[in-house]
């Protein structure tokens, strides 16, 4: 492992000052479950590791102004045990419960999972379907909001600037008086535990009169260079009544949304096939009541 200086600032102001001064030669450490393997195989060689895990005001899950707000340093374990998410974002809680294992979940953070920008990032898929955004701040204290599906630019790359950090993840409340919200999450790994996704699918749909699809967001992971929103599938579903033939039709459309590769876990063909299967499973789950 490369040698580096280490600092554990106590405030976000210090973090921003440091990373701006280091101009890309600093790496942030939150849970470290990606960072440390990356350091050990020399994938990254920072001059300075900035340990942000001690920042106290960035770990929370709360409801505020009709939105759910999650602090960037909230651990995956906290997502799995949150009553609020159970009620408001079951698919995020479900995805977190399938995330690696409890030992990794105790350290890994939601912000770290997003900033790592793996095409298979497990929190990103439900967050895209929930219509989530990240809020960021840079060293000039300029803030911006980026939709999760736009945050990723390539495998393991985000749009974040060198002096910019994520502070919060936010999405609108699901429960509403106007419609009937259903959601579903499906993940396929090579085994039950510790499996990186081969394909994952998340859907959030707003139904009217039982089966009419008013609004729908569909997200897929591990089938493109980044987690994606499946616009073609959404176009097939939106404004239609949920039925077996519609489910079949949407599964055909998914091929146009995805661009999978072959890797150590699965071939591109298998991913294409399983994207259809998982999408159908998720839609059937919604059909049965979410």
């Amino acid at each position: 492992m490369v040698e580096f200086d280490y600092i554990a600032p106590e405030t976000m102001d210090e973090v921003l000052e440091i990373i701006s001064r280091l101009e890309g030669k600093a790496s942030l450490l939150a849970g470290g479950t990606n960072l440390i393997p990356n350091l050990r195989n020399n994938k990254i060689k920072p001059e300075l590791v900035v340990d942000i895990s001690g920042l106290s005001d960035f770990s929370y899950i709360r409801e505020d102004e009709e939105k759910i707000k999650i602090g960037v340093l909230t651990s995956i374990t906290e997502l799995t045990t949150s009553e609020l998410l159970m009620k408001q974002a079951k698919i995020l809680k479900e995805a977190s419960g399938q995330f690696a294992n409890p030992l990794v979940r105790n350290k890994a953070t939601i912000g770290g999972n997003l900033a790592d920008a793996s095409p298979a990032a497990d929190t990103a898929v439900p967050l895209i379907a929930l219509g989530a955004k990240v809020k960021t701040i840079d060293s000039a204290y300029e803030m911006r909001e980026i939709r999760i599906e736009e945050l990723f630019s390539a495998p393991n790359q985000t749009l974040l600037k060198e002096d910019e950090v994520i502070t919060e993840i936010e999405f609108p409340l699901l429960a509403s008086d106007t419609g009937n919200i259903k959601s579903a999450y499906e993940k396929l790994g090579l085994r039950n535990a510790m499996a990186i996704s081969v394909v994952s699918v998340a859907i959030v749909a707003k139904l009217r009169d039982e089966r009419y699809i008013d609004e729908v967001k569909v997200a897929l992971g591990a089938v493109a260079p980044k987690p994606i929103r499946a616009q073609k599938v959404e176009n097939v579903l939106k404004g239609e009544t949920l039925s077996q033939s519609l489910i079949e039709k949407s599964a055909e459309a998914v091929s146009d949304d995805i661009n999978p590769i072959s890797d150590i876990r699965a071939s591109a063909d298998y991913r294409r096939m399983m994207s259809k299967v998982l999408l159908k499973r998720a839609l059937n789950k919604i059909d049965r009541g979410g």
Binding site: Y6, A8, L29, G32, T33, I36, P37, V49, D51, S53, T77, N101, P102, L103, V104, N106, K107, M194
Partner: peptide, 24 residues
């Protein structure tokens, strides 16, 4: 971080000591 043999409790919670820097 795949096998769990290095598990220790950090503030009472199990974590992997091979994915943790001593300075942390």
């Amino acid at each position: 971080g795949e096998c769990g043999a290095c598990t220790v409790l950090l503030e009472g919670k199990p974590i992997l000591s091979c994915l943790t820097l001593a300075v942390e």
